[in-house]
Amino acid sequence: MKSKYILTIPQARYFLLKKHGLIDAFKFKDKEGVLAFIKQVGCIQFDPIDVCGKNPELVLQSRIEHFNKEMLSELLYEDRGLVDYFDKNLSIFPIEDWPYFASKRTHYQNYHRSQKEVDQVTNDVLQYIHENTFACSKDIHLREKVNWAWSDTSLGRATLETLYFRGDLVVHHKKGTLKYYALTKDFIDSEILNCPNPNESQQAQIEWHILRRIGAVGMLWNKASDAWLGIDQMKTAQRKSAFETLIRTNKVIELEVEGLEMPFYILEQDQLLLETCLEVFKNSTVTESLLPRVSFLAPLDNLLWDRKLIKALFNFEYKWEIYTPFVERQFGYYVLPILYKDTLVGRIEMVNNKKDKTLEVKKIWYEETFKPDPEFKKHLKLSLKRFADFNKCIKVKMLK
């Protein structure tokens, strides 16, 4: 059966970037825009490494006009409109989505590392937090070493993290990378906390999660992808069955992209956006009329979750080389893709030198097909100034 929509690669790129608010004028603005964007994509992935901003902050600075890091912290730990928990690995998502992850919390209630040792001290730790409102691992004086994820850790830390995984605790606030935990019942509304998972079966949960991930990226195909990470109990057969149901019930729309064999799928509610984007291509030469916007994308940006998709649509290969041995790195330790108009034109490595309040640009690598012109250089400079402000730097220093 032939797809109703057949797109060119530029049209597919334009749709994706419009969906993300990464092209032309900013679609999202201020703290309200942060919440609106995260509700649109479902979740953004968390990573604690901070070279020039943490991953979720980097995702947001590329899309939210006037974004600052305090906005995300306020939404998480003051307004409680967002929560950090597991979705695509450790993520940040709207608090109202908490019920959908009940099965993940149940899994951790039934199994975790060093279970015997943790269970013996659980009630004491919960009582301590009840009496003190919040606690970090330094407050829990259980120094005995137990088996843990990356390496042995203190029983106090293992217990706090287990209770967090199980949903008994939430993050109250952070100081740097140190997490302070509080009782979940004290910080999540009882109506949300007591709401059962709306998905009554494992297959319904998988279908819901596939829709969520399609919305997070913008469009996806029905094949193995890092975009599916964190969807429990989903193997190839379950994914294919879920897609069959979603197609039959018209919850997704199939489209073809010229030159690519596999079809893509978008959310049914994005059909109007797709048609609007296609209409734009009828009336003008889109690529020539785009605003000269330069953005720096996060290493774990939603748009980049499927690297093969990015290669197919943008002809851009990206690998986060943070865990690649130095001698094997092609580029650098913490390198961000550069988006210019509708094209990924290169990579940039920047460091926030907090001592000197300087954004240090270590190196820029451009794609062979891209030659920076005066217009690009002008807007690159403006984006570097904005990125420096985001990192509370007072100047930009080009090292190479």
Rank of each mutant, 00 (worst) to 15 (best):
Leu359Pro: 01
Leu272Phe: 12
Val171Asp: 00
Ile266Trp: 01
Ile247Arg: 02
Ile44Gly: 02
Gln45Leu: 11
Ser241Trp: 08
Asn147Gly: 12
Ile210Val: 07
Glu328Lys: 14
Pro10Arg: 00
Glu375Arg: 06
Ala158Cys: 05
Glu32Tyr: 13
Val41Lys: 00
His172Ala: 12
Glu161Met: 05
Phe370Met: 10
Lys251Phe: 02
Val294Asn: 04
Lys400Leu: 11
Leu336Asn: 07
Glu317Val: 13
Pro99Thr: 03
Leu300Tyr: 11
Val280Asp: 11
Leu126Trp: 04
Leu220Arg: 01
Phe165Thr: 05
Phe86Trp: 15
Gly21Lys: 03
Gln330Thr: 13
Asn132Pro: 10
Asp152Leu: 05
Gly346Ile: 00
Asp139Met: 11
Phe46His: 05
Asn68Leu: 09
Phe86Ala: 09
Asp373Phe: 01
Ala204Phe: 02
Asp97Trp: 06
Asp119Cys: 15
Asp189Gly: 07
Phe93Val: 12
Lys116Ala: 12
Val257Cys: 06
Phe134Arg: 11
Ser201Phe: 09
Pro337Leu: 08
Lys381Gln: 14
Tyr340Ile: 04
Ser201Asp: 10
Glu32Met: 08
Phe187Trp: 14
Ile129Gln: 03
Val59Met: 08
Gly230Met: 12
Arg248Tyr: 10
Lys357Met: 15
Met262Pro: 08
Gly42Ala: 09
Phe93Cys: 11
Ile322Pro: 06
Asp373Val: 04
Lys319Glu: 15
Thr276Ser: 15
Phe67Glu: 07
Leu304Phe: 07
Ile231Asp: 00
Leu267Pro: 04
Asn132Thr: 12
Gln40His: 12
Thr236Glu: 15
Tyr323Asn: 13
Asp139Cys: 07
Val146Thr: 06
Gly156Arg: 02
Val171Glu: 05
Thr276Val: 13
Arg212Gln: 15
Asp186Asn: 15
Lys39His: 07
Lys378Arg: 14
Leu313Thr: 01
Ile364Tyr: 04
Asp30His: 10
Glu279Tyr: 14
Pro299Val: 00
Lys27Trp: 09
Thr285Ala: 10
Leu304Arg: 03
Asn283Pro: 03
Ala237Asn: 11
Glu78His: 13
Leu290Gln: 07
Gly33Gln: 06
Leu211Thr: 01
Lys341His: 03
Tyr334Thr: 02
Glu317Tyr: 10
Phe93Lys: 07
Glu367Pro: 02
Glu375His: 04
Ile6Val: 11
Ser154Val: 05
Asp87Val: 15
Lys185His: 13
Lys397Met: 12
Asn353Thr: 04
Val361Asn: 08
Tyr366Gln: 05
Trp150Val: 06
Asn68Ile: 09
Ser91Phe: 10
Lys400His: 13
Trp208Glu: 13
Phe281Cys: 03
Thr162Ile: 11
Pro196Asp: 04
Ala312Trp: 04
Val351Thr: 09
Ile348Lys: 04
Val351Asn: 06
Gly176Phe: 05
Lys88Met: 15
Val252Ser: 01
Glu161Ser: 07
Tyr111Cys: 09
Phe314Gly: 00
Val361Thr: 05
Asp306Gly: 01
Thr245Gly: 00
Pro299Arg: 03
Asn283His: 12
Ile9Lys: 10
Ile206Arg: 00
Ser383Ile: 11
Gly81Cys: 12
Arg213Cys: 06
Ser62Gly: 02
Leu16Thr: 01
Ser91Cys: 14
His173Tyr: 10
Asn68His: 14
Glu368Ser: 08
Val146Cys: 05
Thr177Asn: 14
Met1Ile: 13
Glu207Ala: 08
Lys362Ser: 06
Glu268Tyr: 08
Tyr100Arg: 15
Leu155Pro: 03
Gly42Ile: 07
